[in-house]
């Protein structure tokens, strides 16, 4: 695998992704979400200087949970399937480049596009927060970091979808369904399972962490509050069991998702005769 062709492909992929108006829609949405967060912070500071993690902040973390995975999934799903449908992938692979170069070039380009959208969104939101008096830069930075990991994990998932579908529209549809499962049906299933099976906190924690979104949620709340009491027995168990290692474990989980999804996508992409 050589760097030059890889970078060329990455730039092309980045350019394509930047022309995807979804990406800019997400960036604007993120910035708006962040500004809403800063307004909530402002409202909080307006009451006797008391600040804290309240209902509004909890809702906004969950709003972030809706937005970020969608960016990754949509961009990822469009990365391979679209080119394959147009025949551009065939053309690319006919050039003197390896499949690995093509795949990782595309992955790099798409990742850069997602990072750009997140950077812009978080940048504007951060300015809003700074001017409304929230100056906890460390917490914000680590929040940005874990959002990035979540986005990349979902990007990987998008790539998996993209490599196994033949049409761009199918890929987009599959991405949306995956998103729905991750943000909604999975949780609904856990509600049902909890009510009927009454699992132990450890088992429920396991079920939750199978979903990268929940790993992010735990990490985000822990980052803001240094405790997970708000999540009830499961949160308390997680803190009791893993203590100071918890944030690292959660970040590790997200990283594992990234490696795993891109790995699977690469293996699928590398099959011969799929064009």
């Amino acid at each position: 695998m050589e760097l030059r062709p890889l970078w060329t492909i990455a730039r092309r992929e980045l350019r394509e992704a930047l022309h995807n108006k979804w990406l800019w829609f997400f960036a604007v949405g993120l910035a708006g979400l962040g500004l809403a967060l800063s307004q909530a912070g402002l409202a909080a500071a307006g009451y006797a200087g008391l600040g804290g993690f309240g209902r509004t902040a909890a809702s906004l973390v969950n709003a972030l949970l809706l937005f970020v995975p969608l960016i990754g999934l949509i961009v990822g799903a469009g990365a391979v399937a679209g080119d394959r449908e147009r025949g551009a992938l065939l053309y690319l692979l006919a050039q003197p480049v390896s499949r690995a170069e093509v795949f990782f070039g595309k992955a790099l380009g798409a990742a850069l596009a997602v990072i750009a959208a997140l950077g812009l969104g978080f940048g504007f939101a951060g300015l809003g927060l700074a001017f409304s008096g929230d100056t906890n830069a460390t917490a914000y930075l680590s929040m940005g970091g874990s959002v990035l990991l979540l986005a990349l994990a979902c990007l990987g998932l998008g790539f998996v979808i993209s490599t196994i579908t033949r049409k761009a529209s199918t890929a987009s549809g599959a991405a949306l369904i995956t998103w729905l499962i991750l943000v909604f049906f999975g949780d609904l299933g856990i509600v049902g399972a909890t009510l009927s099976l009454r699992p132990t906190p450890a088992a429920l924690l396991g079920m939750l962490l199978a979903n990268p979104l929940q790993a992010f949620k735990l990490s985000a709340i822990y980052n803001l509050r240094s405790a997970l009491d708000i999540l009830g027995p499961v949160g308390q168990y997680a803190v009791y069991r893993f203590d100071a290692a918890l944030p690292l474990i959660l970040l590790g989980l997200l990283l594992a998702w990234i490696v795993m999804t891109f790995g699977i996508a690469f293996v699928l992409f590398n099959r011969k005769g799929d064009l």
Partner: peptide
């Protein structure tokens, strides 16, 4: 905790990342 300068710098860092990548793309 922290200083407003650091917070603005962090935000600008995020923005700059986005802009640079955008320009490359």
């Amino acid at each position: 905790p922290g200083s407003p300068v650091l917070m603005v710098a962090t935000a600008l860092g995020f923005l700059a990342t986005g802009v640079v990548i955008g320009l490359i793309g």
